[in-house]
Structure formats: structure tokens, C-alpha cells
Simulated assay, not measured.
Amino acid sequence: MRVDLVALVVDDYDPAIEFFVDVLGFDLVEDSPSLTNDGRPKRWVVVRPPGAETGILLARADGERQAMVVGNQVADRVGFFLRVDDFDAAYRRMVAAGVEFVTAPRTESYGRVAVFLDIAGNRWDLLGPV
């Protein structure tokens, strides 16, 4: 048993793909036409860090209720965690690409950490070894 996908509600597919693939370095695993439960067109878009098993389903907000959670899916908490092997290199690359960090890097008992915002405004921890 494993977690295969986690849905992330976004405003639109293409800017989200650009952020996760071009800025963070994820792989675009799938971008296929699909249908909503009531038959309207949508896309099935999955991104995943290289070598990872669990992916992120980029789900375009459908309706007012879903649009209200874009950028605040976990009530303004850090809800997503990106672990890297070389924290300093990843941090520098992300800063150079324009990623907004809301905390400076710091060292905790579990490793190096800095909080950043994704394309929608959700909070992520960038995590790496000490």
C-alpha cells in the first residue's frame, strides 16, 4: 500500500506546470484530456519529483468553493514537504528562479529547513540534511 497522488488545487494548469517543472525541477508525468464527473472537459496533470513514487495531481479549481482554497489548502500551515540532498544548492537555485521564501534557512534537529510558497501560495518546507 502507498500514497500514489496528492491533489493540489491551482488556478490554472499551465502556470502550475511551469512552476513545478521549470522552477522546482519536477517531472511532468502526465498531461491528458479528461472529464469532470458531470462530463465537462478538464486535464489530468501529474507532476512528481525525479525518482519519487508519490506525485501531485494539479487540479484546476472548478467552481467558487474550490477557488476559495487555492493557496490555502491547509489553513495557512506548512502542508507540503520537499526533501533534497543538497539543501544549499536547491535553496540558491530556487531563489534565483524567483521562489518566495517566507523564512530564512535554519538548522533544526531534523535538518536544514526553509519555508517557501508555491505558485498558488501554499506553504512548503524545503528540507535537507545538516
Rank of each mutant, 00 (worst) to 15 (best):
M1K: 04
V3N: 11
D4I: 12
D4M: 10
L5E: 11
L5S: 11
L5T: 15
L5K: 13
D11T: 09
D12K: 02
D12L: 00
Y13L: 06
D14A: 13
D14N: 14
P15W: 07
P15H: 08
A16T: 05
E18Y: 03
F19C: 08
F20T: 09
F20L: 10
F20N: 09
V23F: 01
G25D: 04
D27I: 03
D27V: 04
L28D: 05
L28K: 06
V29L: 04
E30T: 11
E30H: 07
E30R: 09
S34F: 10
S34Q: 09
T36P: 06
T36V: 09
N37C: 10
N37Y: 15
R43A: 04
W44P: 08
V47K: 05
V47H: 08
R48D: 01
P49N: 07
A52M: 01
T54A: 14
T54N: 10
I56E: 02
R60M: 07
R60L: 02
D62F: 01
D62G: 00
G63L: 06
E64Y: 03
R65Y: 05
Q66K: 01
Q66G: 02
M68L: 12
V69Q: 04
G71N: 11
N72A: 10
N72S: 13
Q73C: 02
V74E: 04
R77Q: 15
F80S: 08
L82S: 11
V84Q: 05
D85A: 08
D86G: 06
A89W: 03
A90V: 02
R92P: 00
R93Y: 04
R93T: 12
A97W: 14
V99S: 01
E100M: 10
E100T: 15
F101I: 00
F101A: 00
F101Q: 01
V102C: 08
V102T: 15
T103C: 03
A104Q: 15
A104R: 14
R106W: 05
T107V: 14
E108K: 02
E108H: 02
G111S: 14
R112Y: 06
A114Y: 00
A114S: 01
V115M: 06
F116Y: 07
F116P: 03
L117R: 13
L117T: 12
L117W: 05
D118C: 05
I119N: 06
I119C: 03
N122V: 04
W124D: 08
W124A: 06
D125E: 07
L126F: 05
L127N: 14
L127D: 09
L127E: 10
G128Y: 00
P129E: 15
P129F: 10
V130A: 13
